[in-house]
């Protein structure tokens, strides 16, 4: 299966508000502490977003909405990524561009 990437994706997301996903250096502390016990949240999700893998993001809607915004991950993040805000931003992207709300 080929993966399509949308190089303009992050531009669209940035237009919706402040984000700092680029700060992530892939240590996966966030995924390990996440109470949802998914392999996706939040590190992999940000990787998909940064690469512009829109199909993946659309397919993982459930996970994006399952985030509790509890900020446990933010507390242990060594790079100060505003994880909850970034997830909110991805949600508003989905709301606008996918569900046309």
């Amino acid at each position: 299966m080929t993966t399509r990437v949308d190089p303009g994706f992050m531009k669209k997301v940035k237009g919706l508000g402040d984000q700092n996903m680029e700060m992530c250096f892939n240590c996966s502390k966030c995924t390990a502490i996440c109470p949802m016990d998914t392999n996706l949240l939040p590190r992999s999700l940000f990787r998909y977003a940064l690469l512009g893998m829109t199909d993946k993001i659309k397919a993982e809607q459930e996970s994006i909405y399952s985030c509790l915004l509890c900020k446990l991950c933010e507390e242990s993040c060594p790079r100060g990524v505003k994880i909850a805000d970034n997830v909110r931003l991805l949600r508003s992207y989905l709301n606008r561009d996918v569900f046309n709300i």
Partner: peptide
Amino acid sequence: KSQDIHGLKL
């Protein structure tokens, strides 16, 4: 507690 990034396993 950690995640295996290469194997995508918790």
